[in-house]
């Protein structure tokens, strides 16, 4: 508790639906296969948390995790 809030994509679950990097291109990017990847170490700020949550709530595969 109290540490940085981080977002991650589980690569085993991600199927490249492409929603995260369309909704939040500052937080997510895509790899050569079109699967979602987190930019940097995934640390979220109070400014980016809401957008990350929006991306999470649009992932059909439920592959995005936000953890404290």
């Amino acid at each position: 508790m109290g540490g940085p809030v981080k977002v991650r994509i589980d690569p085993e679950i991600c199927q490249g639906q492409g929603r995260c990097f369309s909704i939040a291109p500052g937080i997510f990017d895509f790899d050569d296969l079109g699967n979602g990847v987190v930019i940097g170490d995934g640390t979220l700020t109070s400014d980016t948390l809401e957008l990350a949550r929006l991306a999470q709530s649009n992932c059909p595969e439920h592959a995005i995790f936000i953890e404290e």
Partner: peptide, 13 residues
């Protein structure tokens, strides 16, 4: 919020 599955789900997305 729109988790639609128009492109399928799982490995055959």
């Amino acid at each position: 919020e729109n988790r639609h599955v128009a492109f399928g789900l799982g490995i055959h997305r």
